[in-house]
Design a binder for these strands. Structure first.
Length: 766
DNA sequence: CTCTGGACTTAGAATGCTAAGA
DNA sequence: TCTTAGCATTCTAAGTCCAGAG
């Protein structure tokens, strides 16, 4: 087995993890063991409530008229919109001609208003087709499909002639095709990808290939070694471009945006079964270097440009065929109503397909989404039987049965993915069925440590207690001659598992468990929230529930670049507050020495503050103050320069800095004598006490915020909200708790989940 | 059966935008 | 008022699962 050879030296974490991800924290999950699974078994998280029917059943009178009418309304709206657009254009021009200045502002406002109106129009239009109110859920697929094809990325624009790749300090003349590839790499020079040797190697090979295809360099330089290539000129050029783009005025940016919008307009929508619907990814992926996740053997390879000839369009037989770009032809025209894609092409890295499909807010996507959640809800009435069976089968005499049982247990309890077989030229990641010997460590009596890379090379690390029988089975599955590299479930694969699951319920597969358990968990968590307090508090609770689900599904995100710094800052702020509190306490003692005897505990923290600590805090404060004034000075003068006012003299800055110097001296004095200079406003014990109370509060809230920030820094709430938590749960929560839905779903999520928002009453349960 | 092509969902990174803070 | 942190959106990689061929 080749896996066996690979595995042992696979210890080191992938690049992405070492760089951007902190070590996954040890999460202890305790699953109570219970041999008597008829009683209140923790594992049989069975729903106590009766199944409540969806509102789907109460088929409302169809509000919507036929598609003809619809079309008419739509085209009218379109007309309106067009007029508006042209109007705003002309007004812009005329104003510009008139004069700049005051009117500028007015114009801006006007435009904004118009744009808002436009959006509203669009909203009402989009929401007009309430498919969920039609009883029969049609199967995915279409009867008519009309669209304008896809949008191609712009052709390559060669670099200006003074920007070049250097090889061995010599400027290289490259054919544009090769220069483009070099540019892809140069842009990533300072990123993790650019520094990854595998990425470099793959890029370089493909670059040489392209260079050869195009006749080599134009000035006779032979490129042989990656290390002799100097990309910095190109890199810097790109950086300058970025800067310039950032510097554009708001007005210019807006014009660019409008330009872009106009260009994409024809591709944004299609006509599905006679209704206008949004297309998702109508832009063909531009050429680039393939950015594989984790330790991907193919990362850095050139993803080639896609031409019209590579593209297959799918649309109605009688639909007009969109015009291909000049001088080109479409690869193929297809009329397959059984698939949801509008266009497709083959990419060159894995020779797999890429699809252009409808947007998330489309009826087709909505219907499959609803179907997915209904399937998960269906599992409610089978889950008890399934759990009973797999618990029994944990002791089965047949190895295959045991493996199935343990696998379903892991999928059910720890929300593992199915885990299909992967080929050699992909990153080595696993799911349940593909777990290997080295991914689970067994610690008697019944602790299991999972440590493996899952989807997207995200680390799954958990120390958990498992059912005693599961533990025994895992020992058996690891028994010699098995060793690192060997499959834990050697008789199993997802299709066997899924076939088994289908015997309980049609359509039941491993992934349904994730949906089911995520939504079930959310329901349970939401049930615990009391209907009290402010909207902000309720939101916090909602997010906490959301977080529980995200942790269950192991949804992570890399910490943002500023995170460490901002945590540090927050930490120091807390330190500083504590220091101030200590000073206040010292002040109290200065007023009345006997106080300490009365309440020694209260004053104990005074001794925690060492001289070094104190000095460190002092220094940081001084540093901060100095920087503050320096910045203030520079900023003020910039402003004055701009407005042609008299500049502040150095003297002013020095006066400010003197204040800081004074403070510094006070601090030094304080350290030397240990005496606090009490402010006249705080000259009684009572006043000081009040002040301390305030500080206590601030320290408390800052600490909570910090904790929240740190806990959330590695957890991604979005994925579960988008894919796993039945949106109807959130809708019910909002209705019952008086929380506006906008607080929970962004605009695009509201559009995606319109079917949920409009179909559910507050008694609905998952 | 097993294998693979094909079509779909799920996923975090990258990028863009906006509102809160220095 | 400008910056910047954090949120929303876009992008496309990476999974799952099924069907049909052999």
């Amino acid at each position: 087995m080749t896996r066996a050879e690979m595995s042992s030296d696979d210890e080191d974490t992938p690049l992405s993890q070492t760089i951007s991800r902190k070590n996954t924290k040890v999460r202890k999950v305790v699953v109570e063991e219970d041999s008597d699974y008829d009683s209140d078994d923790v594992l049989s998280k069975q729903p106590k409530k009766k199944k409540t029917k969806t509102t789907l059943k109460d088929k409302k009178v169809k509000l919507e008229v036929g598609s003809d009418d619809d079309d008419e309304v739509m085209s009218k709206k379109l007309e309106k919109k067009k007029k508006k657009k042209s109007k705003s254009k002309t007004s812009k021009k005329s104003v510009k001609i008139e004069e700049e200045g005051q009117k500028e502002l007015k114009k801006k406002k006007e435009e904004e208003e118009e744009e808002e109106e436009e959006e509203d129009d669009e909203d009402t239009k989009e929401e007009s087709y309430k498919w969920w109110e039609e009883g029969d859920s049609k199967d995915a697929g279409w009867t008519t499909l009309v669209h304008n094809g896809v949008m191609f990325p712009p052709d390559y624009e060669p670099l200006p002639s003074h920007i070049k790749l250097y090889y061995d300090n010599q400027p290289v003349e490259l054919p544009p095709e090769a220069e483009e590839v070099v540019g892809f790499y140069a842009a990533l020079l300072e990123t993790d990808h650019g520094k990854n040797p595998v990425f470099q190697k793959n890029f370089f090979n493909d670059f040489l290939q392209v260079l050869k295809e195009n006749g080599g360099t134009l000035n006779g330089i032979q490129i042989k070694s990656f290390n002799k290539c100097d990309f910095t000129k190109i890199y810097n050029y790109f950086e300058v471009l970025k800067e310039e783009k950032k510097k554009l005025s708001a007005q210019e940016k807006k014009e660019l945006r409008l330009e872009r919008q106009k260009e994409e307009e024809p591709y944004k929508f299609c006509e599905l079964n006679g209704r206008k619907e949004q297309v998702g990814n109508f832009r063909v992926e531009p050429p680039d270097l393939f950015r594989g996740r984790g330790k991907h053997p193919k990362t850095g390879k050139l993803k080639r440009r896609v031409h019209p000839e590579d593209i297959v369009l799918n649309l109605s037989k009688d639909a007009p065929i969109p015009k291909p770009p000049k001088g080109h032809k479409w690869g193929e025209i297809r009329h397959d109503p059984n698939v949801q894609w509008l266009a497709m092409w083959r990419e060159n890295i894995f020779n797999s397909f890429k699809y252009v499909r409808l947007a998330a807010n489309s009826s087709l996507k909505g219907q499959s989404d609803l179907k997915k959640f209904e399937k998960a809800r269906e599992l409610k009435s089978h889950i008890d039987a399934i759990r009973r069976d797999y618990r029994r089968s944990l002791k089965s005499k047949v190895m295959l049965e045991r493996q199935k049982a343990v696998a379903i247990y892991l999928i059910d309890v720890f929300a593992l993915r199915a885990g299909g077989e992967k080929s050699e030229d992909e990153a080595d990641t696993v799911g349940c069925c593909s777990l290997r010997y080295e991914h689970v460590t067994l610690q008697p009596p019944n602790i299991v440590i999972f440590d493996f890379l899952g989807k997207d090379s995200i680390r799954f690390y958990q120390e958990v207690e498992v059912d005693k029988q599961v533990f025994k089975d895992l020992i058996i599955f690891k028994r010699p001659p098995k060793q690192p590299g060997h499959q834990l479930f050697d008789r199993l694969d997802p299709s066997i598992l899924n076939k088994h699951l289908q015997s309980y319920m049609p359509g039941l597969t491993a992934k349904v468990f994730r949906t089911y358990n995520a939504s079930k968990t959310m329901q349970d968590q939401l049930d615990l929230i009391p209907n009290e307090g402010s909207v902000a508090e309720k939101l916090l609770r909602y997010n906490a529930a959301n977080r529980t689900v995200a942790i269950l599904c192991n949804h992570q995100r890399s910490v943002t670049k500023g995170h460490a710094q901002s945590v540090q800052k927050a930490n120091f702020r807390i330190k500083e507050l504590v220091w101030q509190r200590i000073r206040l306490k010292k002040s109290m003692l200065q007023l009345d020495k006997k106080l300490r005897k009365k309440n020694p505990k209260f004053y104990a923290e005074i001794d925690d503050l060492t001289k070094e600590n104190e000095i460190e805090i002092h220094e940081k404060i001084i540093e901060r103050e100095n920087e503050k004034y320096q910045r203030k000075f520079v900023r003020e003068n910039d402003k004055r320069k701009f407005e042609n006012e008299e500049l502040l003299e150095e003297k002013v800055l020095n006066e400010w800095l003197e204040k800081v110097e004074n403070l510094k001296e006070e601090f030094a004095e304080e350290v030397k004598t240990g005496k606090i200079v009490i402010k006249p406003t705080l000259n009684t014990v009572e006043k000081l006490e009040k002040q301390i109370e305030k500080l206590d509060l601030r320290i408390e809230t800052s600490s909570i915020q910090l904790k929240d920030k740190e806990e959330n820094s590695e957890v991604s709430l979005g994925t579960s909200k988008i894919n796993y938590i039945d949106p109807r749960l959130s809708v019910v929560f909002c209705k019952k708790f008086g929380v506006p839905i906008e607080k929970i779903f962004t605009k695009s999520l509201r559009e995606k989940f319109t079917w949920a928002i409009e179909s559910v009453d507050e008694n609905w349960r998952f």
